[in-house]
Amino acid sequence: MNAVTKGFRGLAAYMSSLMGADAYTKYLEHFTTTGHAGPAMTEREFWRDRMDRQDSNPQGRCC
């Protein structure tokens, strides 16, 4: 049973990083390691910025 739960958790974690749910965590990680000046964006700001940048930089989706 434990193995099943573990497998399911792993799958959920995989799917969530596949969908990009960990983008903010990665941004923060990058931010802290590189030591920019000023505070990091909040989660809300980050997602807003991420979507808005897609407006002017669309990604193709294939057929």
Binding site: M15, W47, M51
Partner: peptide, 9 residues
């Protein structure tokens, strides 16, 4: 956008 930003899953 407004309710739970970033909760993609």
């Amino acid at each position: 956008r407004f309710i739970r930003p970033g909760k993609v899953m």
